[in-house]
């Protein structure tokens, strides 16, 4: 962290403060940032470490490093269901990304580039879905899913994740599309391009930053969703990671290393995805926010 205090000139906006009290204040704020980072990271590191330790170590010396680095607990967790949960999570997240983003992008296009009869009502209807809580819909949804024969299938989750995320995703894409210049698509329309072509060839490519953000936000949602997954799936083959983890916890509750290993396995992919994509993610949010 020392490099920062030595090179205030490198800061892109701040004018270096020279007064000694200001330097002290800055040092304290830097220390605060470091302390918060430690507070964030330490529990996560502890979690990953515990996957390497034996039960006795976890109980008797919670702070110590593992005595030896054994991947046994990670392997056991992977074999005892985690691999299946990961697969379910991948399927549900993957398919619902496609359905959600496409349905939302179409809707956003329709709401910004065409003149639908009763447009304000349609906007209100779709975006109004954001205000409705999944918990409230739970009881009737159980019966619906059973009637459709979708109970305990990945489709139940895919449908629900799509339905409950379309309003928010449409909201983001619509806000972005509203700000896109209209000359391009109007020129294309003059040239006789169809709506479908304008959407595919002009608008969609221009929307790439917000689409990427929407995908990432959807991954964060679908990979981590618990309420629906808990209610609508009940077998090891259909359970996604968050629910699978709690079942693992009750089935292997006394093998703590394995539980910690499973937790780490389920957290790691999402953290990696976030780090790989954060530039686009933040860019999309920056352009999409504050409209």
């Amino acid at each position: 962290m020392t490099d920062i205090s030595h090179m205030p000139a490198a800061a892109d906006d701040a004018v270096p403060a020279r007064a000694p009290w200001a330097l002290l204040g800055r040092a304290m704020l830097q220390a605060l940032l470091v302390a918060i980072a430690a507070l964030v990271l330490y529990p996560l590191i502890w979690m990953a470490m515990n996957g390497f330790r034996s039960n006795a170590e976890i109980f008797n010396s919670p702070f110590a490093l593992p005595a030896h680095w054994s991947f046994a607990a990670y392997a056991a967790a992977w074999q005892n269901g985690v691999s299946q949960f990961v697969l379910s999570s991948l399927v549900v997240t993957g398919v619902s990304i496609v359905t959600t983003v496409f349905i939302s992008a179409w809707a956003a296009y329709g709401l910004t580039r065409t003149t639908i009869p009763g447009q304000p009502l349609v906007v209100g209807f779709i975006l109004g879905g954001m205000m409705l809580s999944p918990t409230v819909a739970l009881v009737p949804l159980v019966r619906m899913m059973q009637d459709f024969g979708l109970y305990n299938t990945h489709w139940a989750l895919i449908l629900l994740y799509t339905a409950f995320r379309v309003p928010f995703t449409t909201f983001l894409i619509r806000a972005y599309m509203l700000d896109l210049p209209r000359d391009l698509d109007e020129a294309a329309r003059m040239d006789g391009a169809s709506e479908g072509q304008i959407f595919r060839k002009i608008i969609l490519p221009l929307c790439r930053p917000i689409l990427v953000s929407c995908v990432i936000l959807h991954v964060l949602f679908a990979w981590n969703e618990y309420l629906f997954a808990m209610i609508f799936t009940n077998s090891p083959e259909t359970r996604t990671l968050p629910v699978g983890l709690t079942s693992l916890m009750s089935k292997h509750g006394t093998d703590f290393a394995q539980v910690f290993a499973a937790m780490t396995i389920s957290a790691l992919p999402i953290v990696i995805v976030f780090f790989l994509t954060q530039r686009y993610f933040i860019r999309g949010l920056t352009e999409g926010i504050g409209k």
């Binding site: 809707a107 329709g110 639908i116 009869p117 409705l132 309003p167």
Partner: peptide
């Protein structure tokens, strides 16, 4: 103009069916 509905039909359908209807129910 009416055909423009096709853009939003899926969104309206899925949101109406799985978000609004259960809440009324």
């Amino acid at each position: 103009r009416f055909l423009a509905w096709r853009w939003v039909a899926l969104a309206v359908l899925i949101v109406g069916w799985f978000v609004y209807y259960p809440i009324f129910d």
